[in-house]
Design a protein around this nucleic acid. Sequence first.
DNA 1: TCACAAATATACTAAAAAGTATATTTTATC
DNA 2: GATAAAATATACTTTTTAGTATATTTGTGA
Lengths: 196, 196
Amino acid sequence: MLTKAERTKQFILETAVPIYNEKGIAGANIDDVLEATKLTKGCLYGHFEGKDDLSEQVIDLALKMVSDKIRAEVYKGKTIKGKIFAFLDFYKNPFETYISGGCPIFNTAVQVDDNYPFIKEKVAKVIKMGQQELTALLQEGINNGEFSETLDPVVFAFKLVASVEGGIVMCRVMETAKPMHGLIKSLKMELEQHIV
Amino acid sequence: MLTKAERTKQFILETAVPIYNEKGIAGANIDDVLEATKLTKGCLYGHFEGKDDLSEQVIDLALKMVSDKIRAEVYKGKTIKGKIFAFLDFYKNPFETYISGGCPIFNTAVQVDDNYPFIKEKVAKVIKMGQQELTALLQEGINNGEFSETLDPVVFAFKLVASVEGGIVMCRVMETAKPMHGLIKSLKMELEQHIV
DNA sequence: TCACAAATATACTAAAAAGTATATTTTATC
DNA sequence: GATAAAATATACTTTTTAGTATATTTGTGA
């Protein structure tokens, strides 16, 4: 069983995740987190060294949450095609994202670009890992005869993620989900062109 | 001729553009801008009502700069295909972006999502306008016989922007330009599939 | 080139945010 | 259920950032 302190720390992190995702690392502040958790400074600083430490762990959790969720969704697909389709369908609603405020992987990637080198490392790792996994999945589809050799797994894995992530941002700012649906349909068709 | 004040204001805005693009709206602060311009508070506050006013005008300029630049690049293409290719080639270097720190349209879109409703409106307008222009361009290509009816201009215009913008972010965080080149090649091939 | 208004600099205040010292409460173990 | 240690709350200080009042300088038209 988790100790009280461990539960409190987890609670702080979980409460802070959507705040950070919505307001960004620089935009989020300690007081926002205290307000949301109804805890106090003394408590928060008992669990974290300071804002940087909190930020790092919050982003860490957000990245882990969304990565795990995507993996779980992909896992549901029976075939490789089914898994890729499941991946795409995960992105179909740009407004009710798994964590409120859009995709934390991308949101973070944009913010940490020049600032926050530590966090940048973490996001890079998550994205690289995702690319490897998707690429391996597509390669498996070629190996097991689902897809033809005409499919370039590395390129298509990148195209998949870049376009859906970009699509989410665009749809959110334009306040319409429609283009996302067209995009997902188009990507599914593109994959189907390589089905043997 | 521009008056001294007009030139100073323009100088402040132009100097602030990369700062805002690199550090974000919440991350950028007045002192950063004063430091970079070597000007003083009195001067800056003579030209802007406050940080919000400055932020708004800086983002406005950044959006205008990059939009104009993209239009100019696209304009160079002789055929519609040439114009689309020129658009894609604009994004080929994720590190030396036209404005330092990545694409300001996208960077801004991510940040303003929940906060800054005024600026969100502006970004939305820019993105919608871009989509309209790209869609019209593709439609023109269909009309003039360059492309077949199999091309869906609305969907492809969205796919183009979403993927290259997403690609930029991913490449920047992973610190490799290679996937961007694969993506652009893939998008060019996708367009060429519809050439009659 | 003088005058004066516009532009800019200086030196402050105000507000917001982070961080800390210490008191109080709670939890877990005996 | 008493107690010590851990967890949390309170009440501060410090730092950072935004904003302002006023003095000084500079550009520009008469």
